[in-house]
């Protein structure tokens, strides 16, 4: 049952990500990306990382996608199709991607992963403790850094977007 579910999600992700990078309409591209992100959240659910899935949904699907949509509405005329990439470039990039994919998959499949059968559920409480722990496996420093980074990004984004200087 879970397996079927996984395959279903996998197909959704693959199809929509291909469509997201190929669609010539920006708005559609964003919506396809939204579906991909929903699929990713689904995988997190399947992996029993409920908190992570929630974060994915709220931050990505809820925040970032809306940001994109707003920006597109600000800057681009919706419905005007994007320029089509050159054929040779598409071919080259496609070949490169397939080649890289081949190498990566080859590497993955020829490596033997020691999968463990045990499963432990991760609770939000544990996660929070870990994030704020000063101990050996604690993440307090990156956590604080991320906080500052987010603040800086916030201020920076406002400052950049606010500047009204025009060229010439």
């Amino acid at each position: 049952m879970e397996r079927l579910f996984f395959y279903f999600i996998a197909i959704i992700i693959l199809v929509f990500s291909v469509m997201a990078v190929n669609s010539r309409n920006m708005m559609r591209s964003i919506i396809y990306l939204l579906f991909v992100l929903l699929g990713v959240a689904g995988i997190y659910f399947l992996l029993e990382y409920n908190f992570l899935a929630a974060v994915e949904l709220s931050v990505y699907a809820g925040g970032i996608i809306i940001l994109y949509i707003n920006s597109i509405m600000l800057i681009d005329k919706i419905g005007v199709p994007m320029e089509k990439p050159k054929g040779s470039r598409q071919l080259l990039a496609g070949l490169l991607s397939i080649f890289g994919l081949g190498v990566s998959l080859f590497a993955i499949y020829s490596y033997h992963f020691n999968q463990t059968a045990t499963t432990t559920e991760t609770t939000v409480k544990e996660l929070g403790k870990h994030l704020l722990s000063y101990g050996n496996n604690g993440f307090i420093l990156p956590f604080e850094l991320i906080s500052i980074f987010l603040l800086a990004a916030l201020v920076g984004a406002i400052a950049i977007a606010k500047s009204t200087k025009t060229l010439k």
Partner: peptide
């Protein structure tokens, strides 16, 4: 980016075969 990815791919391929 394209050169970087292709280079990284080729190098990882070579490394892979060398280590194997």
């Amino acid at each position: 980016a394209m050169y970087f990815v292709s280079g990284a791919t080729v190098i990882s391929m070579i490394l892979w075969f060398l280590i194997k």
